[in-house]
Amino acid sequence: MKLFGELWQYREMILSLVKRDLKSRYKGSVLGFFWMFLNPLLQLCVYTVVFSTIMRMGIDKFYLFLFVALVPWMFFSTCLSSGTTVVMGQQDMVKKIYFPREVLPLAFTISQFVNMLLSFVIIFVVVFVSGIKLDPLSLLYLPLIMIIEFVLSLGIVLLASSLTVYFRDLEHILSIISMAWMYLTPIIYPVEMVPENLLKFFYLNPMTPITIAYRDILYYGKAPHVKTLISAALLGILVLVVGEILFSRLQRKFAEEL
């Protein structure tokens, strides 16, 4: 509770870090802020070409099937692999001034989250163009699943950023893990393709229920199953709690280890 109060007090710092991150990401490029929309759009083009003309999956509007799962995945995987640099990249501040260290992972996750929200503008445009009918009522579940994914990602960033300070190899290890994790999550294939006996392991992956929920809402146009939502929420909260416990332990020696 004390932490929440302190983070609230430092909200201006979080906000200015998010702004700085978003501003600096595309600073100096000709198209600037446009890249935030252009990037997912171009990716969509690549996947459409590959999966609709070369590797045909036999799924109707496969590009959309893939895209609605891929955008949330990119948010998660960036948190997983770039989250390692969050504390290391701010060494100067960590070593020299006090602020609740959770500010850094929180600001990073928020800025990635904002990025994802902007990509969702493209998703809605594509969904509209493709002519898929969305159920307005089930769309209400969208913010909920986004929040659940945010909670999960924040937990991952807390873990990755604090552990990297002690084990610098984690950065490289996590980029491999991130790739493997993507193929172990039903993103480019439907979860129905997973063999029955492996299915229960698949549901241990917190990204599985989240991906299914996104797809239910945005591709199938139906409300996600309550069971899916509950398992996503529980796994997300579990990761966040473990992440924060570990982070709060490890942060005590950040200044010495950096």
Binding site: E6, Q9, Y10, E12, M13, L15, S16, R20, D92, M93, K96, I97, F99
Partner: peptide, 21 residues
């Protein structure tokens, strides 16, 4: 600590002061 060289003095005041909560 945490000054950003490309930003103006005024902007840095906001950023720096925010690190004090």
């Amino acid at each position: 600590a945490g000054f950003h060289p490309d930003l103006s003095g005024r902007e840095n005041i906001y950023i720096n002061a925010s690190t004090f909560g």
